[in-house]
Simulated assay, not measured.
Amino acid sequence: MAQEGRTTTLARVAASAGVSVATVSKVLNGRADVGPETRARVESLLAAHDYVARRAEVPEAEASQHTVELVFHGPLTAYTTEILQGVLEGAGERKVSVSVSVRPRSQPTPGALRPAAWARELADLGRRGVIDVVDDARHGDLPALVRAGIPLVVIDPLSPPRKELASVGTTNFSGGLAATQHLLDLGHRRVAYIGCDPSSAYNQARVHGFRAACEAAGVPVPDEYVRIGSFDFAAGVEGGGALLELPEPPTAVFAATDQIAAGVLEAARRHGARVPQDLSVVGFDDTAVAEILSPPLTTVRQPLREMGRVALVTALRVAAREPLDSHHVELATELVVRSSTAAIAAP
Rank of each mutant, 00 (worst) to 15 (best):
V87W: 00
I131N: 01
V264Q: 06
M307W: 09
L28Q: 01
A56N: 06
F173K: 05
S16C: 11
G92I: 08
G218Y: 06
V337H: 12
N29H: 14
D185G: 15
T38K: 12
P247L: 10
S25I: 08
H188M: 07
A40I: 07
R94P: 07
V96N: 04
C214D: 08
V100M: 09
T23E: 11
K26Q: 08
R94V: 08
Y79F: 14
V289S: 12
A262V: 01
A268K: 00
A252R: 00
A290V: 09
F173D: 04
V71M: 12
E330A: 12
D124V: 10
P222A: 03
V24T: 04
A216E: 13
R138L: 00
G209S: 04
R206W: 02
S25L: 14
G241P: 01
L158D: 03
H73M: 11
V219Y: 05
R147I: 04
G195A: 03
A255D: 03
A267Q: 05
G126I: 02
L279E: 05
D33L: 09
S64K: 13
P115I: 02
A242T: 07
V191L: 12
T287I: 08
A192N: 00
T333P: 06
Y79D: 03
P303W: 09
V168Y: 07
G126P: 04
A91N: 07
G129C: 03
E291D: 14
A144G: 01
G149A: 02
S97V: 10
H73Q: 09
F254H: 04
Q85W: 13
A166L: 00
G239I: 01
H208Q: 14
G283Y: 05
G111M: 08
G236A: 08
T109K: 15
G187E: 06
L122N: 01
V98K: 04
